[in-house]
Structures are given as C-alpha cells and as structure tokens.
Amino acid sequence: MKTLLFDTFNDFFQLLRYHNVSYDGISDLMDFIYPRSRSTIFRAFYKEMEQETIPYSENIHMVHYDEQHPKEGRCQKYRLTLLDAKAQRTIADELFKDKSPETIKKFLKKNLDASEPVFIVTDFDKRYPDILKEIFRDKLVHQYCLMHLNKLIVNDFPKNTTIEQELLKYRLLSIFYNCQRRLRIPHFRRIKIPQFSILEKSSRIVNHAEKGGFILDSRFKFTKLEH
C-alpha cells in the first residue's frame, strides 16, 4: 500500500514538473497532502526520469540555425544559415536585406519540411520560439545552444573573480550538463560559501532553469544584483 502511494506521488511530481511547477512549489503543495521536502521530490523525480525509456526515431531532422551580419559595401546584410547536425553539412546559406520574423519564416519554410519532426538548435534570440512554433507546431523540439548559454554566464562575471565567484560560475556552467556533478576544490572544502548576488542575465537563466525543467542544486540560492 505504501509503495502504491509513493508511486502515485511520483506520477504527481512528473505531472507538475511537466507544467513547469518548481520543486519548491511542489513541496508547498505536498504540505497539504503528505509533506515532502524539495530535495526528496527532486530525488524521486530524477530517479523516475532515469528509468524512462525514450523512443528513438530516425526521422527527426536535427539542424542548427544561425545568423551572421556581414556587410556588402556599405550595406548591412544578414546571413541566415541552416546546418545538418548529423551529416555536418550546410542545408541552406543565404543573404537577406533584413532578418525580420517574416524573412526567417520564409527561409525556414523554403528549406525545411514543416510536416516532418525537426530538432532545431538556436541561440537565445527571444523571437525564435514563437517563429518556430508557428511553422512546425507539435513537430518541433527547440533546444538553446549551450555555447551561447556558457557565454552569457561567463560574461556576467568580472575578469578578475574571487574564489567564491569562480566557484559559482563553474557550478552554473556544470548544472546544464550533469545534475549529479559536484565541483570539488580539495584545498577549499572548509570555505563556507555565502549567498551571492549575480548579474541579472544569469539570474534569469537560473530562474528559467528552475521553472523550465532543468536541474539546480538546492544548496545555492541566487539573487539579482543590487544596483
């Protein structure tokens, strides 16, 4: 009976995470049912995710979309590029006078089949999710580029960092790869890490990760920089 109860809780956790409810939010809800801490919920959810079987499909087209801004004489041009991630070849590479949403849509529709499943990697331009969703609808898997994410994180720290800032920076960089990794610096294990303030851009990334399904280490709290 107890096993059935906890299995039901695990299904409940998965459903709430699917709807982007944070671990803290789930813990608050569980206080009304059967109190569960944030870390307990995290461990249960992660264990269930490790046991999930993800169906493999050879039909998913994996592509990278990128933009560059070359000049033709004195005229600013915009180079839109699609790369095949598996074949490592260029699908399309064209110059345009602008990079408006309509231009991007026409470029994607011309070079990709919107009726087939597609996995697209882009940078963090805020326009992309709506553009891609409009074209590919439920056939879309949209992934942000980790290289661009790393740049955003690194650029939010000063060049001459303290050991605490450096530790925080590498924790931010590592959480998007392996949630079980722990950064260990043997000679500094006794240092008590205070609560840090980090720049607003990284704070948004961390908040997005917490709400959107990425894994965060609960031992750290993140706050926006006070100007």
Rank of each mutant, 00 (worst) to 15 (best):
E48M: 14
V121Y: 03
K71V: 07
L29F: 07
R190P: 01
F188Y: 14
N207C: 07
Q143V: 11
T90W: 08
S37F: 04
Q51C: 08
F220N: 03
K169L: 13
F45K: 01
G212I: 02
A85L: 04
E67Y: 07
F222C: 05
H69Q: 12
E210K: 14
L225E: 14
P129W: 00
G212T: 05
E67D: 07
F119E: 10
K106Q: 12
T81F: 11
P55Q: 07
D138S: 09
Q195L: 14
N111Q: 06
N150T: 09
P101L: 04
L168V: 08
H187L: 11
K169W: 01
K47H: 12
D156F: 02
P129E: 01
K86E: 15
R38V: 06
K224C: 09
V63Y: 03
D98P: 01
D93N: 13
R17G: 00
S22M: 00
T161M: 15
K192M: 13
K201H: 10
F188T: 11
R89I: 12
T162A: 11
I135Q: 00
L95G: 05
F119V: 05
N10E: 15
F45M: 03
K110A: 07
M1I: 07
L80R: 02
D28C: 04
I215Y: 08
K99V: 06
F32A: 06
L173W: 02
S197Q: 15
K211C: 06
N20C: 05
K97P: 04
R204I: 12
L146G: 04
L225D: 11
H69N: 11
I91L: 11
N178C: 13
V121T: 12
I104S: 00
A114F: 07
L16V: 00
S37H: 01
L146S: 10
I131F: 02
S100P: 03
E116Y: 08
F32K: 10
F124N: 08
Y46I: 04
C75R: 15
